[in-house]
Write a protein that binds this DNA or RNA. Structure first.
Lengths: 228, 228
DNA sequence: TCGCAGGTTTAGGGCAACCTAAACTATCGC
DNA sequence: GCGATAGTTTAGGTTGCCCTAAACCTGCGA
């Protein structure tokens, strides 16, 4: 069976493992069993067993007691899932009235059920977007991905004006709150004030002033240069 | 656990069984183990085992060696799947460029992954259609379904003019051929000639003449009355 | 009415994924 | 350099769903 043929028949579970490992090892740093277990809400022994199977399938490499790294093939399969996930999110928001805090769970199930053909048609209907509703970059169909360099809003200097590019999607509550403030990718903000020792920051966006704490300032990722 | 709550967590397999049984027993006539096995391409013992589980779940009733009938709850769950399937088909054809011979397999996988919310949004985007692309009626969200009375084109009298309402979807090849002749739901045809002893029929549709055999004439279901 | 053919069910087994409990290793503080 | 602790793996078990082989009914024709 060719590597590509193997990727055609991955289990739902396998797909989830690959996605999790990809997420945990952005620059090829190995992911630990317990990190994976925590992210997928499984027991460590379950992960250990699956890791063994996946390494036998050639999707990852496992150094016992050290960690796990995706092979080129594993990475390709993971990126295929990420592409699906983010395109589905974009599609649901654009065409079916979903809000950015509710798409994640729907996409989480659909990504395992769609064919490549359907994903590409959704991409076409969307005009082949570069990012999903949270600003996360969508990998290309050929498996390449461009992760733009971003700066957390918490690192800005007072007085800087900059565009929000990306928002951590993991907490729906937080997304809902940010949406209520109008803080989303594409919006331009100006940092008006920051209190010392991790204190609140005041910023202006679309003519309104908002005061936010460190946590929010941390997950609001901005373009590197003002106006860039 | 309430009956409704049980229906929330049905397995993919269970959903397929219920759909199959619903399809095999249109008027409550019991379905046999082997019919189900054949439709789902499973062994008879597998079906036997699953039937036992489903009857313990209260989704169907099983008279050993006799057959299987859905309970009210089982029927409700089956109709929910049918609604999903047909709405997904309609959506894919309308918005994502699918043809009526290719939607089935895509819908077959998606129907297990969508939430009720998503299905209802697709229904809304479509304007709550009454039928899918093959003319099959879409059950309502409340579980009711209206099966229109249809006559196979093979039963028409020469000279009758009538509207095609519904086409059997089970064979993609056949659907493709019918599409190439322009014979699809909503099209009005006139029967010009029929040869005896199951011979070919000549008909006129959209200004063109076609000659079709018994098999096709059998799966083209028409409105009961001319012009109705 | 008896037996046989077909359909059905029981028996027994496999695989994918999960779990808990117990055994194991790696590393850090002393 | 040596445990204790935190993290990891092995052992053994469960559930869902599938299979083949063998035992079992049922109804029909002789």
């Amino acid at each position: 069976m060719s590597p590509t043929a193997a990727a055609e028949s991955l289990t739902r579970s396998v797909e989830d493992y690959l996605k999790a490992i990809y997420r945990l090892s952005p620059e090829g740093r190995p992911a630990s069993t317990s990190e994976i277990a925590h992210l997928l809400e499984l027991s460590a022994p379950s992960v250990s067993g699956m890791v063994k199977r996946l390494s036998e399938l050639g999707l990852l490499e496992h150094a016992p007691y050290k960690g796990v790294q995706l092979t080129a093939e594993g990475r390709r399969a993971a990126l295929r899932m990420v592409r699906r996930h983010r395109l589905i999110e974009a599609y649901l928001v654009r065409f079916l009235g979903y809000s950015w805090d509710t798409v994640h769970q729907e996409a989480e199930r659909l990504e395992h059920a769609v064919t490549d053909q359907l994903v590409e048609r959704m991409a076409g209907a969307l005009g082949h977007p570069a990012t999903d509703p949270h600003g996360d970059p969508i990998p290309e169909a050929d498996g390449s991905i461009h992760e733009p360099v971003c700066t957390p809003l918490s690192d800005l200097e007072v007085g800087q004006t900059i565009e929000i590019r990306r928002v951590d999607e993991s907490q729906p509550e937080r997304l809902r709150y940010l949406a209520s403030l109008g803080l989303r990718p594409g919006v331009v903000v100006t940092l008006l004030d920051r209190q010392p020792f991790g204190g609140p920051m005041t910023l202006e966006a679309a003519g309104e002033h908002h005061v936010i704490g460190q946590e929010l300032a941390h997950v609001l990722l901005c373009a590197r240069e003002a106006g860039a």
